[in-house]
Simulated scan of single mutants.
Amino acid sequence: MQTILYARVSTADQTSAHQRTQAEAAGFKIDAVIADDGVSGVSTILAERPQGKRLFDMLRRGDVLVVRWVDRLGRSYADVTETIREFMRRGVIVRTVINNMTFDGATTDPVQMAVRDALIGFMAATAQAQGEATREAQKAGIAHARDRADAYRGRRPSFTREQFQTVRDRSELVGVSEIARETGLSRQTVYRILQSPADAEAALGRWEA
């Protein structure tokens, strides 16, 4: 009979050592640590992670699987609930460091079973909700960064690199109206390019980067 800590490390500020320290501080005596580094709980279910597969192979009846919380097993409601129930079917006891929850398939009392299953569902749903909130926050952060970058670059030029070059090349040969007809640009745009070609080229450069 062994006690195994499973740690999923998805970001740089998480470590398996930190999760083991938390578990031991909570009173768990850990025999081994199995960790998946740089793995998302949203996109990769436990059974498809390199060390997750190993976990399924090595756990036996009577063993204890310790996780910091159920979100280490996954961020999908269906994945988390099925994973915990599969381990219970195998006789593995699943315990969490946070809130000291225990999920034991040996329970036969109907009331205890109902409470256990309700807790599994609630905690799995919470893990998924947190995962979705994190994903939305990341999307919002990316959009904000993109908006800031766009603001720094200024207004997008109304002309292309090819049009800019045509204006420069033709300015010694024909007038503004002819250049406007050839390029499809407005006369005002042609004037702006000719009056300040360095600024026009810099604007193109910021948006081409």
Rank of each mutant, 00 (worst) to 15 (best):
M88H: 05
R60W: 02
A143E: 13
V167D: 00
R116D: 04
S186Y: 05
A26L: 12
R89V: 01
A133H: 10
V176E: 06
D117I: 06
S10N: 02
I142C: 07
T83C: 05
R168G: 01
E178D: 13
G62N: 04
D147F: 06
V190F: 01
A12M: 09
G141T: 09
I84F: 02
E82P: 01
L119S: 10
I179F: 00
A129K: 13
W207F: 11
T15Q: 00
P110K: 02
D150F: 10
R68P: 00
Y191Q: 12
T134D: 14
R75G: 09
H18M: 13
T183P: 01
L59H: 05
R95F: 04
V97F: 12
G62K: 03
A140K: 15
R85F: 03
G121H: 04
S43A: 14
E136H: 07
Q163S: 03
V9Y: 03
A202F: 04
Q19M: 07
V174L: 01
A124H: 02
G41E: 02
L73W: 04
Y77L: 14
D117N: 15
I120D: 08
S76C: 06
A198W: 08
I193S: 01
M58F: 01
G74Y: 02
V80T: 07
E86Q: 12
I179M: 00
I98E: 14
Q188F: 11
R156S: 06
R135H: 09
Y77I: 09
T96M: 11
G131Y: 02
A202M: 10
A7Y: 08
D79G: 04
S171Y: 05
T134L: 14
I142R: 11
R54D: 05
T44H: 13
E24Q: 14
G131T: 04
